[in-house]
Amino acid sequence: MTESINAGTNNTIVLEADKLTKRYEDGVLALDELSFTIKSSEIYAMLGANGAGKTTTINLFLNFIEPTSGEARVMGIVTHKEPLLAKEKLAFVSENVMLYQNFTAIQNLDYFAKLGGKKNYTRDDYRNVLLRVGLQEEAHNKRLKGFSKGMRQKCGIAIAILKDAPAILLDEPTSGLDPKAGYEFIQLLDNLRSEGKSILMSTHDIFRAREIADTVGIMNQGKLVMQAGRDELTDKDLEQLYMKYMAGHMEAAA
């Protein structure tokens, strides 16, 4: 791993959660004063059980929901105040996206690229990016109808790459990928990091997180219960820490 040696940009803060709190209308506290920062050329992995608040965090960055209090900022722009400006700086890969079933891979890419304001891509650009995410060339002009979950996920990642935004949000990106594709995906993230992207990903995969992330945060019931840099962790550590914090928190809750 060649960490931050060739990071072109200076270490400015790109993504920032500042005491981010979300209480839903039904009273559930989904996020409780969450704070973290992610600099450029940095990957931050959120770990946690289902319902810990990972997806809520990403939704808040995308302004799909409004925070109850606190702010989510992208390059200093408060997302719920200037959502359109903030979204220009964000790319997003969602979990298990279906995309447009009647469009080919290229047509899907083209549409979303244009929606992101990138109008000058050529077919070659689409081809290259699809190859980069590991989608075989013969699938490029096929309709998505017959695609497997992994192939669709690759298209989703390609869409995010094409947007060429400083920040990338990934919601369970490796779900549905086979081990080989998972490995390739980690390589890809590494590449993107070296291009200076700031990446926030939520995942269940402790080992991948340990492998790629610069910082790992463990969430439980809307709180960030642990945050550690890569240097502070080993594979075994993280798993134990994860179990410990989950269990510890439950004890605390009980």
Binding site: F64, K87, V97, M98
Partner: peptide, 15 residues
């Protein structure tokens, strides 16, 4: 929304 493309579209600056 069911296809997930609504989220994906609105990850872009679309009013």
């Amino acid at each position: 929304r069911e296809k997930g493309t609504l989220k994906l579209s609105f990850a872009n600056p679309v009013p």
